[in-house]
Nucleic acid binder design. Structure first.
Length: 422
DNA sequence: TCTGGGGTCCTAGGACCC
DNA sequence: TCTGGGGTCCTAGGACCC
């Protein structure tokens, strides 16, 4: 049976979310910055036209932005995830099978559907009507071709946001116009190697005869990608959300940090959110990695401290994990450095229910589960951080907390910041 | 002054076993 | 030239994604 995939991708998603509540910014350059107001992570086409690149550090293009009256926002993730949910809910009406691929993208199974182009336009119009978010739609017999179609739909305005690559002759024409670096799963390193084989376009890649060489150089996935370009589906729709095998949490600091005391607070805070994620997927972990580092961009003595710590038994108890993380931190900390970032990672994650005590695990009375559940519930209801472990720090002003000087209001999630109707 | 954060998959190579 | 062979498990590191 023939497969048909559609990839629906929101246009400049974070910027589009900001524009929803600022209709005056329509057709004007808008950008959204990463955490700590570091670099651009979302740009409207007006901003791209000004030459501001993805990932460009804000301070380097600040003057340009001011000159052109660019509206620049700090990231406001509670707004974006909320809008994402609404988009996905709308998309679900159009397919029996939906894979939410990222915050702003989803694959739809459209196998057996007729008149695909019209259907895609209907999807596009419904999403914008229901949520206000503009999207582009790419269609193809494989995920890779659907992705490529979507790339073309975004790049050339003449397609009006929809490209259908289900027909062979359309694929031939389209793939000749796509550079390999634009393909899904191909970045600089792979593109360079492909170019060295005289493979420049997606069509060159698709038609390259020496498949053994492809596999040797680009491994199994490289070959699968080629087969997908030929119309043979190799990447299936993934309908079940998999549990995370690793959970990380890290942040740059708003201001440089020197003391172990501040690092302890930052690490404890990161562990707190990592453990919340861990419990949310009903898992436990056994290993904790901790690191802290100086800024590689700054001309100061550099240090990258890393340490890991294994617990005697699996757990998701914030208090216990913090204890292990802090002892790991103590032994990697060196005085006299200007720290810029700290992060933690939980690994050896497994299902709580499957978790059995090993022969050598020490017995610990399990009073923690109910306590953690109560904590999560209160923080969900009354806001993150309402209840926390004291190690996270009790002072009001924390030097290490990130900068977010340009954040929009929490239009859809914070009661006190609801849009006012005059 | 100022440069993000959170993930996954694949492979090679070492340790270890019989 | 030629150092046994074959298997599993784990980890580190590279590459990529959004």
């Amino acid at each position: 049976m023939n497969k048909t995939f559609a990839l629906v991708d929101c246009n400049a998603f974070f910027c589009s979310c900001e524009r929803l509540f600022r209709p005056d910014l329509q057709n004007k350059p808008v950008g959204v910055l990463s955490n700590n107001d570091g670099c651009f992570v979302s740009r409207t086409k007006e901003l791209k036209k000004l030459g501001v690149k993805m990932g460009a550090p804000y301070f380097k293009v600040k003057a340009l932005c001011e000159r052109h009256k660019v509206s620049v926002f700090s990231s406001n993730f509670s707004l974006y995830t909320n809008m994402s949910d609404r988009v996905m809910l709308t998309l679900a009406q159009f397919t029996p099978e939906l894979e939410i691929y990222s915050v702003d993208e989803a694959f739809l199974n459209l196998a057996g559907f007729k008149d695909l182009k019209n259907y895609a336009h209907e999807i596009k119009q419904t999403v914008v009507r229901n949520t206000g978010i503009p999207v582009s739609v790419g269609i193809g017999p494989t995920k890779t071709l659907a992705k490529t179609a979507n790339y073309l739909a975004k790049k050339y305005s003449k397609f009006n946001g929809v490209v259908d690559l289900t027909k062979k002759e359309d694929q031939d024409k389209a793939l000749a116009h796509v550079k390999v670096i634009e393909l899904w799963g191909v970045a600089k390193a792979t593109a360079d190697k492909l170019n060295a084989l005289n493979i420049y376009t997606a069509k060159d890649y698709r038609d390259f005869k020496n498949t053994r060489l492809i596999k040797n150089i680009f491994t199994k996935v490289g070959l699968q990608r080629q087969e997908e370009l030929q119309g043979k589906s190799r990447f299936e729709l993934e309908l079940i959300t998999k549990k995370k095998k690793e959970i990380m949490c890290s942040r740059s600091f708003g201001k440089p940090v020197y003391s172990l005391e501040s690092l302890r607070e930052a690490v404890a805070t990161h562990i707190t959110s990592a453990c919340e994620k861990l419990r949310k997927q009903d898992s436990v972990c056994a290993e904790i990695q901790v690191y802290t580092r100086t800024s590689p961009f700054k001309n100061v003595p550099q240090y990258y401290g890393f340490n890991s710590s294994k617990m005697l038994s699996h757990s998701s108890d914030t208090r216990k994990v913090i204890k292990y993380a802090l002892s790991a931190l103590e032994s990697l900390y060196k005085m006299g450095y200007e720290y810029k970032k700290a992060g933690v990672q939980l690994s050896q994650i497994r299902d709580r229910k499957l978790s059995q005590m090993s022969l050598f695990e020490q017995y610990e009375p399990d009073n923690s589960e109910a306590l953690m559940r109560a904590m999560d519930e209160i923080n969900r209801r009354d806001g993150a951080g309402t209840i926390k472990v004291a190690a996270c720090g009790l002072r009001q002003k924390k030097a290490w907390v990130m900068n977010q000087n340009r954040r929009s209001q929490r239009y859809v999630t914070g009661f006190w910041e609801l849009k006012k109707v005059k």
